[in-house]
Simulated assay, not measured.
Amino acid sequence: MTAQQQHIVVIGAGYAGLAAATRIGRKHRVTLVAPESRFLHRVRQHETAAGLPEHRPALAEVVRGRQVTHRQARVTELDLAGRKVFLDSGEALTYDTLVYALGSRTALHGIPGAAEHAYPVERAAELAERMRTAARPGTVAVVGGGPTGIELAAELAEAHPAWQVRIVAAGQVGGWLSAKGRAHVRKVFGRLGVQVHDRSAVTAVTAAGLRTDQGTLDADLVAWAASMEPRELAAETGLTVTPDGRAVVDQYLRSVSHPEVYVIGDAAQVVVEGVGELRMSCATAQPMGVYLGKLLTGRTDRPFGYGYVIHCLSLGRKDGLVQLVHKDDSMKPKAVTGTAARLVKAGIVSGVLWNLR
């Protein structure tokens, strides 16, 4: 693989794809396919929704100095047998090796009205504009009790104190955290005036708010921060995928059905010995991209390894939570809160951008 220069096509410029492309581009010729011109710093979308400045460096700046050419286009089809990538620009790219890093998107789970009335985190800027231009303050309901939903609810409540913010979850909001972590999230929500609706599964979204299995909740705006789902292209192309559509890979992140294709980030089902199946997140996606860059440039020949250390949550601009975890992502009792946690989270988020190269 590394004896001579190859042409490697990377599709997707998220945390995994961009980290891989910049490193592979030190030795091989890379074509990076992505429709956007700037990097989407997804873990900061709650800040965008609150109207704070975006931190989105130009892809051209991130790949500067590497043998990386950015094609600003969408992939419409993959011909794995012919090793071709077809773009919506009409162009067809040939490759020696393909890196599939199309990531994931917010899952609407087929909930009636969600597509018409809810703002998924990908539309954070639109949500910010709606709140900014509203004739009067109202109620915004955040659906999802995971990290994204918690960060979004806290950020909106702090940035818009005149609005009533609700967080609605099918299970317990922050239920995966330790007792100390859950207690701190509740404390911050209490301070910010966020109404918590646990164990309220959303059954429909309407122009007037939410219908849940516990009753109706009024809302002028609905922000959707539920679980993530992979893009359909992997399954449509013929890669072996899990029931939820993630490509099954081996210990070197190669497709088990097409070993000339590497799949990284949220698009891949990655199982690490002693850790288990990795969850979809920036925390796992970027290390995959870094690893693959080393593998394809001959700087490692070891299988991919990973172990969890912490969960980080920002709770507005003044507070945060750093939850310590075991290697397998199970919770430890200890958690750091307050200003110290906020600074740790800010440092990690800034380091993500630096680590793209």
Rank of each mutant, 00 (worst) to 15 (best):
G14K: 02
G181V: 05
A135L: 10
V188F: 00
T212C: 02
A73P: 08
V68S: 06
K327E: 09
E126M: 01
R342F: 10
E116K: 12
G146A: 13
L239D: 02
A162V: 10
Q4E: 12
G146F: 08
R254L: 00
L127H: 10
A134R: 11
E77N: 13
H184F: 09
V261F: 00
G174T: 04
H55K: 15
L40E: 10
Q251N: 11
C312T: 15
I8N: 09
L40P: 07
G351S: 06
T139K: 14
L324M: 13
A16R: 01
L156S: 07
H109T: 03
P333I: 00
E54Q: 14
P161T: 14
D213Q: 06
R211C: 03
V325C: 02
A125V: 10
G338T: 07
G181R: 08
P259K: 09
V349Y: 04
L353W: 05
H117P: 09
H7T: 13
E129C: 10
Y291M: 12
I167V: 15
G145Q: 02
R299Q: 15
M280Y: 06
G171T: 04
V188M: 04
L210G: 06
E155I: 04
R279Y: 02
W163S: 14
A219K: 09
R123L: 11
A201E: 14
A285V: 09
T242V: 03
D244M: 06
G138F: 08
V165A: 14
Y15D: 13
V249D: 03
P120H: 00
K180E: 13
L108G: 01
M288E: 14
S257Q: 05
G351F: 03
L108W: 07
R317F: 10
R29H: 06
G305C: 01
V121T: 14
A60G: 12
D213S: 09
V10P: 02
A20F: 03
M331A: 15
P259I: 06
A114H: 07
H197E: 12
H117R: 11
M1W: 03
I167W: 01
D88H: 11
E47K: 12
V68G: 10
A20E: 03
K27P: 00
A225K: 07
W176R: 15
G90T: 11
H197I: 01
E61R: 15
